[in-house]
Amino acid sequence: MIPAPLSDDPNGRHRDPVTGAATEESLLRFLDAVLAMAEPNGPQVGMLCLEVDGLDRLAAAHGPALREAVLLGVADRMQERIRIQDLIGLVDGGLGICLAEIFPAQAHGAAQRLLRAVRLQPVPTPFGALPVTCSIGLALSRGHEEDGPALLARAQGLRRAARRAGGDTVVTTL
């Protein structure tokens, strides 16, 4: 069983107003709930963390409007490619997806498809269409092995490893 997605959020406490993605706090609550319901021998829970390569440098040169446009464009691509039971959220200057009830091969395939989707189509910005790439970290858990913050931290570490490897790649624990 998967927890219900966030409601419409009329007060704006659970979703980012620019991207529509869940806040990090809301994503962590969802991740903890999914981990608590995971069966020890069933599908796993995945946490995917994505960082747009060089976004800080681009934002420093062109301002926050560029950062927001790029994150919105990437979040839209993510939203188009996730299952209904998954949740996209803001994570540490980038984006993350809680992949509920997923097998390792499915999670890895989803990460690779997302990597290609970001790479293949420029993101519209106030400064014109901008080609971008991303670094993705993917961590999986069987549920009761760890809590949401621990799984998120592992995915963030893997994302940093992807960035150190030159970006435009997925690093996973598979």
Rank of each mutant, 00 (worst) to 15 (best):
D92C: 03
P122A: 06
G46Y: 07
G94V: 00
A153Q: 11
N41W: 09
G63P: 09
G128Y: 07
E24W: 03
L31V: 08
A59V: 03
I84M: 12
L35M: 03
A36Q: 11
L27W: 01
I136G: 10
A36N: 06
L115S: 12
T23A: 06
A61D: 15
L158R: 10
G137D: 05
A36W: 02
A162H: 01
P10W: 00
D56E: 13
G63W: 05
Q79M: 15
A153T: 04
T125N: 09
F127C: 06
R113Q: 09
M78C: 13
G128I: 08
P3L: 01
R57P: 03
R81V: 11
I2M: 07
I136P: 11
G63H: 04
R83T: 03
A33D: 04
M1L: 08
R15I: 01
E101Q: 12
G46M: 10
R116W: 10
H144E: 11
G143P: 02
P124Q: 04
F30G: 03
S7I: 08
I82T: 13
T19V: 12
G128A: 12
A22T: 01
V123H: 14
P124M: 05
G96K: 12
G94D: 06
L95E: 01
P10T: 01
G148N: 05
P149A: 10
D147S: 13
L120N: 15
L115N: 10
T23G: 00
V132N: 02
L151S: 05
A150G: 02
D147R: 11
G54M: 14
P149F: 00
V170A: 00
V132T: 05
Q106I: 07
I2E: 04
S135T: 07
Q79Y: 14
E145N: 12
R77P: 15
D92L: 04
V91W: 05
P10S: 03
G128P: 10
F30S: 09
E146R: 02
A162D: 03
G46P: 12
V170T: 02
L55I: 08
T173A: 14
E145M: 06
H144M: 07
A21V: 00
P126L: 14
P126Y: 07
G148V: 02
R57H: 14
L152T: 02
C134D: 05
G42S: 11
D147C: 13
P3R: 00
L35Y: 09
E39W: 10
L95G: 01
R116P: 05
P64S: 14
P10R: 01
F103E: 15
A165G: 13
V70P: 12
R116A: 14
E24G: 08
I2G: 02
G109V: 08
G148L: 01
A100P: 00
L28Q: 03
L27S: 06
A161Y: 03
D9F: 00
P64L: 15
A150V: 01
P10N: 03
R163D: 12
R81M: 15
P126S: 13
P5L: 00
M47C: 13
E146A: 07
A110Y: 04
M37S: 06
G96N: 10
G137E: 09
T19P: 07
Q112D: 11
V70C: 10
G157C: 02
G73P: 12
V52K: 14
T133N: 05
A33C: 06
L27Q: 12
P43G: 15
F30Q: 08
L27G: 13
M37P: 04
R83N: 08
L174A: 11
C98I: 02
T125K: 08
